[in-house]
Amino acid sequence: MIQTLAFYLFAALVIASAVMVIMARNPVHSVLWLILAFFNAAGLMVLVGAEFIAALLLIVYVGAVAVLFLFVVMMLDIDFAELRAGFVKNFPLGIAIALVLAAELIFGIGAYQAGQLELGVASGVAAPALDASNTASIGAVLYRDYVFLFEAAGIILLVAMVGAIVLTHRRTENARGQQDISRQVRRNPDEATVMKQPEVGRGVDL
């Protein structure tokens, strides 16, 4: 009973906040609605027993991706009039894409219902220790049977890292306030100070 109630609560909130993401005028509000959507999606994940995925949704999407979105949105100086003009211009294209996606969804579900496809049949070597928590089960499969995909994910992350630097990093030469800690530590009184005994009226050469 509670599970059903919780499902409808989360599902309704996901849909409502997803609609608000599109409808909100202020992009910052959109991102905040998106966070609410992620949060409720995590709730749905818990309901189907995928607690690790739920935690990942919160840690990665809410904790990192949405922060990035928020930064980007705050950084942009957005001209709303221009955005709306784009909305009218791109509206037919958007409708077309939505129709294609809907058609694909219908085909996909139809084909799956017809029983012609067998999706995600495990090789059988996986599926270790069923009593383990699902975090451990994911690990046991991912790092033994899908090592190649896992390493490929690593390469993708590397590409993303390099891409981010190439796109956003401006290298400034001899920047102000750059601290060289080893130089600071190496410095000793003998090098840093000199004793001078100037004669009266002569001054000091520095």
């Binding site: 990035l68 950084m75 451990a136 992350l157 981010a164």
Partner: peptide, 30 residues
């Protein structure tokens, strides 16, 4: 724009850490 770079580095390393979580508890199987 520096903040953006920090955020994207954080995102990438956070993803990396989330790959470590299931790995850390499944080492006895793998």
């Amino acid at each position: 724009v520096k903040f953006y770079l920090v955020a994207i580095s954080f995102l990438l390393f956070d993803l990396e850490a989330s790959f470590l979580f299931p790995w850390a508890v499944s080492l006895e199987y793998t």
